[in-house]
Write a protein that binds this DNA or RNA. Sequence first.
DNA 1: ATGACCGTGGCACACGGA
Length: 258
Amino acid sequence: MIRLASFNVNSVRKRAPHILRFLARQQPDLLFLQELKCRTEEFPGVELAASGYQFRAVGQPGGRNGVAVLARIPFEVVSEALPGDDADSQARFIEVKAAGIHAAGIYLPNGNSGGDEGYLYKLTWMERLRRLAQARLDAFTPLAILGDFNVCPAAQDLAPGTLPPTDALVRPETRAAWRALEHLGLTDALRALHPLPERIYTYWDYGSAFERNAGLRIDHALLSAELAERLEACTVDVDPRAEEQPSDHTPVLIDLAD
DNA sequence: ATGACCGTGGCACACGGA
């Protein structure tokens, strides 16, 4: 069995203790992190490597974005940038090869800032991701995409009244771009095992949202067909969200049979 | 009925987040 996980940590330097506790408890083979909010050289790799994990971080200046992978199995980095835009300097993508599969960790643009241009960047990014997935599927490469997609795929993926219908996380164009990914043949791992109308969230705003369960499901795992057939479990671990000084997100995990 | 926070850079508060 191989276990993959994704965790938007909202500053990796603030959340190193939470990450270490998560690793000790769940022992994922690969853990993808999003929103490092630090430069590559500021990644607390020494601290995290003490748990026996190797790592690769992709940070950027300015305290925004940033993705990383932690691994307790051998891996090689395939790419540190999503193809399709030479001008894209935002650290939002890492793809690795491990245990015979390709796994991508993504931090998809939120799309609510920067006006029309910001939202177009999100939609363009989603189309670039679709093309990358298409290329992997065309080559019969087993593919898993995990991360913060910043998309609520369906109405049941957000608590009523949490977001206005104009929000970039729920706009019809956003959901259409998500469906375009699914229509490639990718499976939404959580919904494959926990179909609607079960309500499961991965994000709660700071304040009282967690205690009211006013959440969103925006962290996902998409699987190519051969990996979907191996899917044994997909869970959201809510424990880190209940800890002191938590991230506003909590991890998603998938277990794949050998 | 409504609002409620947090992290970063940098040292006041704007900006992004979702």
